[in-house]
Amino acid sequence: MKQPLTFTLNGEERVLYVDTRATLLEAVRDYLGLTGTKEGCGNGNCGACTVWLDGEPAYSCLVLAVEAQGARVMTVEGLAEGGRLDPLQRALIEEGGLQCGFCTPGLLMMARSFLDRHRRPTEREIRGAIAGNLCRCTGYDKIVRAIQRAARGQTPPQAEG
C-alpha cells in the first residue's frame, strides 16, 4: 500500500508517494537518494541511521516514513552549512575519530544534538550520549576525544541542559 507523504528534509519540502512499509531511513535513502544516513542493523541497535526528527535524534529505521508526515527531518547532509564543516565534523577529522566512516553520520547527528544541549559534558556523559551509536573500528577513544575537543570550542555554558 502506498501513501502520500510531505515532510521537510534538511530544510527543503519533499513530497513522496511511499510504501507504508518503508522506514523513514528508506524514504531518505532509497526514495530521495540521500545515502549519507546508513543502515547498520535495521532494528534500532546500532545508531548508524540516526537523524533528527523534529529536532530530536531518532533511529530512522524505527520510524515508518508515513509517520514523518509534516515533520522536520535533518540528516548528516544538512550538517555542514554552506559547505562549511560543523566544528564537530572538524574535530572528528582532527582527532582521527573515524575509521571506516560508516557509523560516522549517525554518530555526528547524535553527538551534535548532545553538544547543543550540554555545553561542558564530562567524559561519562559523552559516552552515555553515544552509547546508542556502535562503532566497530575505533574503540570510541578518538571519538570521545573529538567530542571533547568540539565541546572545548563551544561558547561557555549559559544554563546547562
Binding site: G44, G47, T50, L53, E56, P57, A58, Y59, L62, V63, M110, F114, A129, A131, G132, N133
Partner: peptide, 9 residues
C-alpha cells in the same frame, strides 16, 4: 530504556 534515540521515540 535503550539509548537517547530510543527514549526520544
Amino acid at each position: 530504556v535503550g539509548s537517547i534515540q530510543i527514549q526520544n521515540r
